[in-house]
């Protein structure tokens, strides 16, 4: 499955402005800057001008990657029409993001982690309040210190917030399948200071669920591994190959989807992409006997010591 996250990245770098359009964009830049200044402004700082032109480029780039442009590019040969399409695309993205954020709020996990609460509960609302799509479309507004398992920070403006919220939704749909106490227990092992340390809530949960499913295929994952289970896992997979591990992980993930009733295609796609991104990490961790940074295994190594 190809997750939209990767699709997005590829498109972003492929869609460059063609020479004719570049000519129109040059003409449009002056209009765009004048529009920003209004009737009473005549001058701008170079920094502000740079910001505005980045915003213009981002808006046009967004238009070039939109469905409407791909469907009928001949309608947008004029750069002004392309800018209008970009602004419309931004509005739609913002509208969808707001709706998705509303849907996410009731799913948030009741943990005390500061970065999680400050970013997901407060900062995202700040984004919607302060974002200015017309002239600072590329501005991310917030630092989004809470990391999602698949990063969204290479994206800009409304596109960033849209993907960031979609990632959060996928992660929370997954997390909601577990008991809150089981999650809290897990996070206490991730870090002794699970309030101030910055970590993603989804990663340890899916990693534990994967190992659990690989060890106990018939069990519904409930994040109930023991230190002995991790030892068993080490022994079983220490001589494994990348291909064999990938195959077992895929099968385990399919079982998890079924056992936890995770039927949403986007959530499944998110989990598969994440799993693919950690296979090497898991292999390194197992075959080098703990030298690596696979959160789940590190967690239980600490647990065993405790």
């Amino acid at each position: 499955m190809n997750h939209p996250y990767h699709q997005n990245q590829n498109d972003q770098y492929q869609s460059d402005l063609n020479p004719l359009l570049k000519h129109y964009v040059t003409l449009l830049s002056q209009t765009y800057l004048e529009e920003y200044l209004g009737d009473e402004g005549f001058t701008l700082s170079t920094d502000k001008t740079k910001d505005l032109l980045t915003s213009l480029k981002f808006t046009l780039d967004l238009a070039l990657r939109s469905k409407a442009y791909k469907k009928a590019p001949e309608q947008y040969q004029d750069a002004r029409a392309l800018l209008d399409l970009g602004r419309l695309t931004l509005k739609e993205l913002l509208y969808k993001s707001r709706l998705r954020y509303k849907a996410l709020l009731p799913q948030l996990i009741l943990v005390d982690n500061r970065t999680y609460n400050e970013t997901v509960r407060d900062a995202i609302q700040g984004f919607f309040k302060h974002y200015r799509p017309n002239f600072f479309a590329h501005d991310r507004i917030i630092t989004a210190d809470y990391p999602t398992a698949l990063p969204a920070t290479q994206l800009l403006g409304a596109e960033f917030i849209n993907v960031y919220i979609r990632h959060l939704i996928a992660e929370h749909v997954f997390l909601q399948k577990f008991e809150l106490d089981a999650l809290k227990r897990l996070y206490r092992f991730v870090s002794a200071d699970d309030i101030d340390v910055i970590f993603n809530l989804f990663e340890p949960a899916i990693q534990h669920a994967l190992i659990e499913s690989m060890l106990y295929p018939s069990r519904i994952p409930m994040l109930a591994l023991t230190a002995e289970d991790i030892d068993t896992f080490h022994h079983r997979y220490r001589d494994t190959t990348y291909e064999a591990l990938t195959r077992d992980m895929r099968t385990a993930l399919k079982r998890i989807f079924k056992a936890l009733n995770l039927s949403d295609a986007y959530v499944q796609s998110y989990c598969v992409t994440y799993m693919n991104s950690i296979t090497i990490k898991l292999l390194t961790t197992i075959t080098s006997l703990g030298v690596g940074n696979f959160v789940a295994i590190e967690t239980f190594q600490k647990c065993a010591k405790d």
Binding site: E34, L37, G41, F42, T43, L44, S45, T46, D47, T49
Partner: peptide, 13 residues
């Protein structure tokens, strides 16, 4: 303008 890193966008200034 150069000294203060500014750009004149409109000629009315």
């Amino acid at each position: 303008l150069i000294h203060h890193k500014r750009i004149m966008i409109k000629d009315q200034f």
